[in-house]
Amino acid sequence: MRLGFYGRISTTYGNDIDVPAVSAGLSIAELRRELARRSGYEDILDPIYRAAVNNVIVTEDHHVREGDRVDFLSPLSGG
């Protein structure tokens, strides 16, 4: 599964990573815990980093499907 990271959170995990053997069906909360376990970095557990699936912000109980694009977004700062 490919994961994207934007803003401050990208300094921990990179901009775009492939996490092999992550099964579809995980909730976003479960995906965060799995990523933290595999990487050893727990930053992703902070809900300040919102999750988007296929370009739509989702809640923690959203379940990802095969082929979904999951992005984690740091707080926005335009203007």
Partner: peptide
């Protein structure tokens, strides 16, 4: 400032920060 999907970082003698 708060809802447009951008992320900013500044660079200078201090290095780089979000």
């Amino acid at each position: 400032k708060t809802d447009a999907v951008f992320w900013k970082r500044e660079q200078g003698g201090f290095g780089e920060r979000w």
